[in-house]
Amino acid sequence: MESGNLSAGEERFRKFSVYRIVEHLALIACFTVLAMTGLPQKFYSLGISQLIITSLGGIDSVRSIHHVAAAIFTVLALQHIITAFIGVVFLQWEPSMLIAVKDIHDALHNVKYCLGMAGRPAMSGRYNYKEKFVYWFILLGGVQMIATGFILWFPVIAANYLPGQFIPVSKVIHTNDAMLIFLLTAIWHIYDSIFNPEVFPLDKSIFTGMKKTTRT
């Protein structure tokens, strides 16, 4: 943290604790491995997919890697949900990720701003509406991925409790959800944290924990 870089009217606040920084790093690792081993399975007929599959030792070892990463991802997701629940309910954590009506107003306001119909962008609290959207999309999508993923991983067990048709349904959800999360991450999250002119070349807050704030 280089406080010397702060200009007038700017100060830094701790946006992410070390716990969240580590959690995010683990998530990046999991996500990369899951996408690297999952997308080639979805687009298995593409040359690049087959190259990846072959270089990772064939489809069965790609699936094994996917399963290991999925298991780690599941643990990550579960601990996140449990700690968030305990924190908010018992430890008086500020539920700053909860979506409020203000976020919808902010989103509409920002569209107006971009179109030149408003003088300045929406001001947000700790997390802006974009971050909240990505967070909840990935969290809920992730839960869905875990559920459908386990059905696909253990179809025989799943069919003991669910109608058989849930297995192909799970496949449809798993593969499409994966694509949605990937696109969201690739198009928006990566843009917003790297290519967005306001933060370019990188919004380092998730790695340093500190975020500049502008007060007017």
């Binding site: 069919a159 058989g164 048709q165 297995i167």
Partner: peptide, 19 residues
Amino acid sequence: CHSNATSNFPDAWLSHYKP
């Protein structure tokens, strides 16, 4: 192959039909 498969399991396969 799926030794513990039960009666629901074959429905996982759509019998060559398009959904």
